[in-house]
């Protein structure tokens, strides 16, 4: 996809024929209008006119439209996918963004002003002024319990969340725990219930009272939503069944970290647990 675009860009001599940041200005303005509303109503899903992007919908087109709408030449961008800067999807998106926006890229989240992500928040603490852009496959946390959008909009409006609480009740009754491995629903500022995109449970508490801005984009569903800095974000849980993050039997097999989110990789002989955030893991090892 983006390789073809790359060819086009080259054939035409740099960016000739393309607007800065690929999207035309009116389309960006439309996305920014949606984002302003989203930031004013933390956790509320705002519809926007999702455009065709040179990536397929479902491959980060929502996040990409946000990134391209808010980016400036002074930004430094990191794009990573399930914790890795080297995945195909991350490479393609990073390539597209850097070419069309003329911005430097980095893998170090501490140097980035804008971080587009799928499934993770960097392990390094982020600071004020940084912007996280999340790629969202399913924007509505009520999708499982109220598949019809007209119904779910009314439920959100009336703050009628008994169905999702029932889902949680059933999890505890049948499994003794919540079944949400990722995308654990969160309550934002005591108002809207929101899906934090498919981040692991490990990352959920990090959205609470965070100094950075979180922007969420679902291209296929044409929805954006946001969590502004220093906003209360509470994973949904019963008062007497506290939310718990993943626990691992060992630390990272590569860097030894015990406070990070680990994933299984197939070693030659047996599977190993290693940091999902590969950049941070590599830095720890070279230090």
């Amino acid at each position: 996809m983006s390789a073809r675009l790359g060819e086009l860009v080259h054939r035409n001599g740099g960016l000739a024929g393309y607007n800065y940041a690929y999207m035309d200005e009116s389309a960006k303005r439309e996305v920014r209008r949606g984002l302003l509303k989203a930031i004013s109503l933390p956790g509320h899903q705002v519809p926007f006119a999702s455009r065709e992007m040179p990536v397929a919908r479902g491959w980060g087109s929502g996040g990409l439209q946000i990134t391209l709408s808010v980016i400036e030449p002074s930004d430094t961008v990191k794009v990573f996918d399930q914790g890795s800067d080297a995945s195909m999807n991350a490479i393609a998106l990073r390539d597209l963004i850097s070419r069309t926006c003329e911005v430097p890229t980095t893998t170090d989240p501490r140097e980035a002003t804008l971080i587009q992500t799928r499934h993770r928040i960097p392990e390094d603490p982020l600071v004020e002024g940084q912007v996280m852009v999340f790629q969202v496959p399913i924007a509505d946390p009520l999708r499982r319990v109220a598949p019809r959008m007209t119904v779910s909009r009314r439920l959100h409006a009336e703050r009628d969340y008994s169905a999702i609480w029932l889902y949680l009740y059933e999890d505890h009754a049948r499994l003794g725990r919540s079944s949400f491995a990722s995308a654990h629903p969160v309550e934002v500022e005591d108002r809207y219930i929101m899906t934090p995109s498919p981040i692991p449970r490990h990352d959920c508490p990090r959205l609470n009272d965070a100094p950075f801005i979180s922007l969420f984009g679902a291209g296929r569903e044409a929805i954006v939503y946001a969590v502004p800095p220093y906003t209360k974000v509470r994973p949904l849980s019963f008062e007497d069944r506290p939310f718990e993050i993943e626990r691992f039997a060992t630390g990272c097999a590569l860097c030894g970290a015990t406070d990070t989110y680990l994933t299984e990789v197939d070693g030659d002989a047996n599977a190993q647990l290693v940091c999902s955030d590969t950049d941070r893991c590599a830095r720890r090892r070279t230090r």
């Binding site: 009628d160 008994s162 169905a163 609480w165 029932l166 009740y169 019963f238 008062e239 069944r241």
Partner: peptide
């Protein structure tokens, strides 16, 4: 149990 619980959850009860 869940069907009965739903009404209590809807009324704002949050202790499992």
């Amino acid at each position: 149990g869940g069907n009965v619980a739903e009404r209590m959850l809807g009324a704002g009860w949050r202790r499992y």
